[in-house]
């Protein structure tokens, strides 16, 4: 389980808005919780359980981080706007990653999960439906809404950065 899913869970935690360090901590929590519940997790539901637990742990951690003012992106795209780099320029990788954090942060959790799985994990929608135990139609509608939000945030960044006028 650890070998098969650790990287996936870690990436998911990172994409649910945790820093690298916190993703480490959170991944540990997820697998500790899973190891203590092995007797109730059906083997075929292992990944679903891990992912669901990861969402919950990430959400808890974000909440406590916000309480401690550790999250840099409480205002999505806000503090990213005053950069002098034009949107047409190649964006520095790290900066881009921070911006993506901000954009993802703006999404509701359910939307974000589908968005991350589809756009970043490049998982087929049927697999997402199975993983989240939701109907394919729900995956499609969440993805649609997440993309709308994504476009809104991208437009917002572009506007604030003074490009694409």
């Amino acid at each position: 389980m650890l070998d098969e899913s650790f990287d996936f869970i870690w990436r998911s935690l990172r994409r649910f808005g945790l820093s690298d360090d916190r993703a480490d901590d959170a991944a540990q929590q997820v697998f500790i919780i899973a190891s203590r519940k092995l007797d109730v997790i059906r083997p075929e539901a292992e990944r679903s359980f891990l992912f669901g637990t990861a969402m919950r742990v990430a959400s808890d951690m974000r909440r406590s981080a916000v309480a401690r003012r550790e999250i840099a992106h409480a205002d999505p795209a806000g503090d990213l706007a005053d950069t002098s780099i034009s949107p047409d320029e190649l964006i520095d990788q790290r900066r881009a990653r921070e911006m993506l954090d901000g954009v993802l942060h703006a999404m509701e959790e359910d939307m974000r999960a589908v968005f991350v799985l589809f756009e970043l994990e490049e998982m087929p929608t049927a697999e997402i439906a199975a993983l989240l135990a939701i109907p394919p139609g729900t995956v499609a509608s969440r993805l649609r809404r997440a993309r709308e939000e994504f476009e809104v945030q991208i437009a917002r960044i572009k506007k604030r950065r003074g490009g694409d006028q």
Binding site: W10, R11, D20, A23, Q93, L100
Partner: peptide, 8 residues
């Protein structure tokens, strides 16, 4: 930019 996400 998220392609490089990986645990250390």
């Amino acid at each position: 930019s998220a392609r490089g996400d990986q645990p250390r």
